[in-house]
């Protein structure tokens, strides 16, 4: 029976496809939250497999903070067109204007908190009952405790104490009116699993994941790309280095990694040898408080 054996990537893939099919069957209006990052690119790849030879039976939604890397936006548009997916883009900028929201101040004014408003408005606008996200449980300790089917109340809030037990491979997606579910099909994948899968499946990625030259500000030991969104000061130390991104978020809250890795193999070997976690190395926003993610999730964040 040795030929009836799945390796760990095949097992993870089978589990994620199973989750995608449960979403499509259990919900009336699901949506896949697409950011242009490697995790959501992997999600789209898995969704295509789940419903092949049919189309993905739900739209891709991008909550555009306006602080994105152009490379990620270009990738998003090209990818959506190539797989004939419905792409919905809603801009945080518009929410800020419509609701007179106050933008964060400081050197790296993050719209991370504000995008929750746009997300909740978008859920309301399209009456989405399930939003599919690319969060992984290995990322952070609040994530480690969240269910694959995570029920949120009318305000999008996560209540860690009122989670449903999740048993076997049985997913209970029943909700009351006004509630919605965040679903995380790659909960059980780690960062390295994602990279190995991308390599195995030969999934194209935005170019910023590979080594390139960029002008950067050195800030508390982290390298942040010079952009219109970052407040420039005369005391800034500006350097030009060969870097790549390990995660792709906003230009204001994602730090770069010095690297000469131009192929997936090189990226994977660097990540295998990395001594710092993905969020620790590249996310400026998680450093603010120890419970930053927990707080954001309770407020309706992904």
């Amino acid at each position: 029976m040795s030929n009836h054996h799945l390796n760990y990537l095949e097992q993870l893939e089978a589990e994620s496809i199973h989750i995608f099919r449960e979403i499509a069957a259990q919900f009336e209006r699901p949506a896949l939250l697409f950011s242009g990052g490697k995790d959501s690119i992997t999600l789209v790849h898995l969704a295509r497999k789940a419903f092949a030879p049919g189309k993905i039976p739900f739209p891709l939604v991008h909550i555009d903070t306006g602080h994105n890397f152009q490379e990620a936006l270009d990738y998003r548009d090209a990818m959506a067109a190539s797989i004939d997916a419905d792409l919905i883009v809603r801009k945080v900028e518009d929410t800020i204007k419509a609701k007179s929201l106050t933008e964060a101040k400081g050197k790296f004014p993050s719209r991370n908190w504000l995008q929750t408003y746009t997300l909740l408005d978008t859920i309301e606008e399209f009456k989405f009952d399930a939003c599919i996200g690319g969060a992984r449980r290995d990322e952070e300790k609040a994530r480690a405790k969240e269910r694959i089917f995570s029920v949120r109340d009318d305000f999008g809030q996560w209540n860690p104490k009122l989670q449903r037990p999740e048993l076997w491979n049985t997913y209970n997606g029943r909700i009351n009116k006004g509630e919605n579910v965040r679903v995380f099909p790659i909960s059980n994948w780690t960062e390295l699993d994602i990279w190995n899968y991308i390599k195995h499946e030969n999934i194209p990625l935005p170019s910023i994941y590979f080594s390139h030259e960029r002008e950067l500000i050195v800030h508390e030991g982290q390298l942040v790309a010079l952009s219109d969104f970052v407040l420039r000061e005369s005391t800034d130390v500006i350097v030009t280095k060969r870097i790549r991104y390990r995660t792709v978020g906003d230009m204001t809250c994602t730090a770069a990694v010095e690297s000469n890795a131009v192929t997936l193999d090189e990226v994977i070997s660097e990540i295998t040898a990395a001594k710092i976690s993905e969020r620790g190395e590249t996310r400026i926003d998680d450093r603010v408080t120890e419970a930053a993610m927990e707080d954001r999730k309770k407020n309706g964040y992904f």
Partner: peptide, 28 residues
Amino acid sequence: DGLRAEREQGITIDVAYRYFSTPKRKFI
């Protein structure tokens, strides 16, 4: 160690999942 909500209230919320791997296996 868990969430701040747990530390504050001295409780633990049911199940957390941890991941590690060796060259031979991935563990959940």
